[in-house]
Design a protein around this nucleic acid. Structure first.
Lengths: 352, 352
DNA sequence: TTGAAAGCGCTAACAA
DNA sequence: TTGTTAGCGCTTTCAA
């Protein structure tokens, strides 16, 4: 055989087999102009015969671009993130890019490791749903030209920014890409929670519990903020004993405790999908509005009223932002907030 | 700066900065022995200072192994596959491998394209949930040393094999890896369906409908086989008018049609999770057993009795098989069948 | 313990 | 239209 001793055939092997020069093979493989149909045919035949497939590593090494992006999410098996991931994949496909993805499992160390692994593989860009709050280690990568977009939660680049206060994007002059933050796509957490709690209040509830995720999670804080605003506007006093912050596994028992207390809540607002399900599973059957939509919410009895986010929209927006950067957009970092939607299904319309 | 004109610092830059030779940097980066702590310290400092990160493409080009595997599934957003994918990711992590994943969307063309893209990137191995039936194009890749495992459904390598008949694995002499098939991990589709239908029959049903996926899908055929066996064993005659094969979107109306006919079914066996949900959504409230478990099946009223597969187990098994091959296992291709589990929750125990 | 040189497979720049 | 050459950043081999 003309093929190299062992392993895969290379362009050189194909060239030898087709009786042309290496470069001609390269031209055919890359659809470059300037090859006679006849020669191209001979080359293609040789490629077919040898089972040649271009070695992307070599190509990448030479060209500097990998045509791949890295996606770091909390858990690929969580329906929210898998919908998100699917949307990212779709946009990437449209741009001829591959997606490397990994689950951080809410562990900032693992997140860091994943991100740096992706950078070692020289992804063109990153989409990150941050678990950690300090992403200073991204600095050299950003400086080296890797683009990054934070999604669902803001990421911190060292200088204290974006942890839920109202500081917005502004970062000084804004010339060039050397600003102190990355593009960020969030959903309107505070606004959504406000709408959900307000919905319960308008249905007559004056004691509304908030069962949310750990206070350290960005979205959780934002949603609590919306909850407080709704209470305030309705002239209801905030009662700390009606608020619980913790992992989904503890949500059920936390609520049970509240219900056993004196002056118990007549309605509950849950801070995310997993917590909503946990609360339902704990047997809670009072008025309920949950953040995040989930499959079958409409088939339960009563149907579960939710504040729906759009995971696919979030993913699509993040990916489009990233590819705009990769295409050369040098504008100031953007911070986009996607709206939420209240979907009444029964549980949120129950009277006190 | 000591750094190259533009772009990322390289080992050479680090070497210059640390006043050592390139190779010494390489030794430090790869934790190779034979470097004085003092020298190593100088190198590490330079690495830190320059923000150096090894270029994986160059490394791969030189070494030939990418430490990454490719995962091709139908849809990363489908809970079944995302659980599967998560398990694969976990095993890969344990072996220091990255996972490139992509959705085929049940399109054999897209599947082929994805697989070949992965091969171009020189993944060490592939885990494929096949949509297509002919994977002859994998031949050159397998010959070149890429390992592959089919999961959930068998894949065909050109010679007619594994399409649901009983031919098992055997492939001639079995010396070396040049056999005509790959390792395959399936779940016990026929057995699971048999158990589910049998469960309905034991609860008094004599007219049981089968609402399954398109007949062309491997699992669908297998499950129908189990359905028929259960009927036969119970002495019930097979009635084609009680069988429907089609996409989930049409499942509801197909069942409605059956229920309107003379001598309608008193119970339904659904062929996969999406179809179960579709049937529930169509308002069907009779006896029901569904293939595949799904979240909240226990919270519906009545709870939905299911034949549960173990997506994570499937993924873990496939990945472990793959890494065993990558570690050098040259044994004959295996075909593993994972058991299913019947979970009674109420809907499957309703009387006729 | 350290270093110099060769080359992995490809593309870019420049001939012919 | 086709071919030649250099080198991407790293590891491997061999030498000091």
């Amino acid at each position: 055989m003309t093929e190299s001793a062992r392993g895969r055939p290379t362009m050189k092997d194909v060239a030898t087999a087709a009786g042309v020069a290496l470069k001609t093979v390269s031209r055919v493989v890359n659809d470059e102009p300037g090859v006679t149909p006849a020669t191209a045919g001979r080359v293609s035949a040789a490629i077919e015969r040898l089972g040649y497939r271009r070695n992307e590593s070599a190509r990448v090494l030479r060209r500097g671009r990998t045509s791949s992006i890295g996606l770091v999410i909390e858990d690929v098996a969580d329906p929210f993130y898998s919908g998100f991931g699917r949307a990212v994949e779709e946009v990437a496909l449209g741009h001829g890019s591959l997606v490397l993805s990994g689950s951080s499992g809410e562990d900032p160390g693992r997140e860091r490791e994943l991100i740096l692994t992706f950078c070692s593989r020289r992804v063109d860009g990153l989409i990150i749903v941050p678990s950690g709050t300090d992403h200073g280690y991204l600095r050299p990568e950003l400086d080296a030209g890797i683009a990054a977009v934070f999604a669902d939660r803001p990421g911190g680049l060292g200088t204290d920014n974006g942890t839920g206060t109202g500081t917005e994007t502004g970062s000084g002059t804004g010339t060039g890409r050397d600003t102190d933050s990355c593009d960020t796509v969030l959903c309107d957490n505070a606004g959504g929670a406000y709408a959900g709690v307000n919905h319960l209040i308008r249905h007559g509830h004056r004691r509304v519990a908030f069962v949310g995720d750990r206070a350290s999670v960005f979205t959780s804080g934002e949603r609590l903020r919306g909850y407080r605003r709704a209470l305030e506007e309705a002239g209801l006093t905030f009662d700390g004993s009606l608020v619980s912050n913790g992992p989904a596994e503890e949500a059920g028992s936390a609520l049970t405790r509240m219900l056993r207390g004196g002056d118990p809540p007549t309605a509950v607002f849950t801070g995310n999908g997993r917590i909503t399900v946990a609360v339902l599973r704990a047997g809670h059957r009072q008025a309920l509005v949950g953040f995040d939509d989930f499959e079958l919410a409409d088939l339960l009895v009563p149907g579960v009223t939710v504040v729906a986010q759009d995971p696919a929209g979030l993913g699509r927006t993040a990916a489009e932002l990233l590819f705009r950067r990769l295409a050369g957009d040098r504008g100031a970092p953007e911070r986009i907030e996607l709206p939420t939607r209240l979907i009444p299904r029964g549980s949120g319309e129950l009277p006190p």
